[in-house]
Nucleic acid binder design. Structure first.
Lengths: 225, 225
DNA sequence: TGTAATGTTTACCAATCGGTCAAATTATCC
DNA sequence: GGATAATTTGACCGATTGGTAAACATTACA
């Protein structure tokens, strides 16, 4: 009551007094981010509206804005929450493991994520495709560092002859693009395969092909001059 | 003067009297589509505004709408114009050619398109990513037919043992995704590679890697049980 | 050169956008 | 149960959206 002015929404004080966090807050923010994921992943940031998100979340627009003060804040919260999870498979890439097996399981994992979390994949795809205006820092920071680290691992493998000599960065790009394709371009994949091949077997087929491609393509057998 | 009502914009009569088509029409429509490509490819359909396009095109909004009556009409005209060109590389896939060489040059061509026409790539990527609401018919029609045809060619190659046994559809998907990645996710690629590797050599590196990957991965050498 | 067709612009519209406000409602805690 | 803080809502705001109307300017062509 010190100031007659506006009471601050909860998401701001949260930083100040970290202790208090209502059950309702927990639930509603969850609800909102879930809806936001639906909408942002389907239309991109600019193409999405707060009203859409509110409708999907089943609450009024001002109510949304009570928890997240702006559309940007929603998007940011979503990105932050999803990014860590999204990089998990790459983080699991183990320098000590068997190269062939590591690559194989990385492909598997990425493909599973494309199957099980297509909205998350599309969220990033939309963002990056449109110039990554909101996640540039994440790309140049944490992402680059992680990739640099893993590229070094791969380079070591190539040097010791465990896999064919190749550019580790482009290898990683290729695994990303081929696997995420099944989430991001799902409509196209379905359209081309037709109904007959659009069942769940689709992902098994893709996994088999990609393993064959990458394992075969990286086999150190012959000298690739 | 027969009707006092609105004069029809040119793009409609065009269908009726195909003969007349002004020099100005030619130029302005070109100008508009060029600007529209800029904007749509950067923000997707829903995220783009007519005002943006008008500004890029250097003309007033009503003037744009004189040539294309709606935002949708612009988008459609753009899609129609670009689609044929975009499928050209796949169309060039030759059943009679040497499999290894055909695949190699298909990769090259797709990669060149990603480098030289990134906006076109992103235009489609945006559209497909957001559920292809405007090009569903094209995907299920012309695209599917072309892919079916070329998949048959590849299948013949695998059966005759010229390349390793593999799913032709997923092979095509993989070539699409890996090559278009360099256009669609350009920002990410740059961010990860850093400035030092973001020069023109980038595409040469990518080409080398992808050829190695696909040629190696499809070599029929050993029996892939 | 005149005039009809074509092209361009200013002013405007209703709908929707992101976001605010104050009042009303509900949960929390003593 | 009452005070207090947290939550929710309807009404609203200025800016922007896609698109229109009609006056005005230019071009093509006889």
């Amino acid at each position: 009551m010190n100031f007659k002015g506006k009471r601050q929404p909860v998401t701001i004080p949260r930083a100040a007094k970290t202790l208090r966090r209502t059950r309702i807050q927990e639930e509603k923010e969850e609800q909102i981010l879930e809806a936001a994921l639906d909408v942002f992943s389907a239309s991109g940031f600019r193409g999405s509206t707060i009203d859409q998100i509110a409708e999907v979340a089943g609450m009024s627009k001002p109510n949304l804005l009570y928890y997240f003060r702006t559309k940007e804040a929603m998007h940011r919260a979503l990105i932050d929450r999803v990014l860590y999870t999204w990089l998990e498979p790459l983080r699991a890439f183990d320098a000590e493991g068997n190269p062939e097996e590591e690559i194989r399981s990385y492909i598997r994992r990425k493909l599973e994520m494309a199957r099980d979390f297509p909205r998350e994949s599309r969220l990033f795809a939309n963002e990056v495709l449109q110039g990554a205006p909101h996640i540039e820092d994440e790309l140049k920071g944490p992402l680059k560092e992680l990739v640099d680290e893993k590229a070094e691992v791969i380079r070591a493998w190539t040097k010791s002859g465990k896999i064919a000599k190749c550019d580790p960065y482009h290898l990683i790009f290729s695994i990303w693009s081929t696997t995420q394709h099944y989430a991001d371009f799902d409509v196209q994949v379905r359209a081309v395969l037709g109904q007959e091949h659009s069942g769940e077997g689709r992902f098994e087929d893709a996994a088999r092909f990609l393993e064959q491609l990458f394992i075969g393509g990286l086999r150190p057998d012959r000298s690739e001059s």
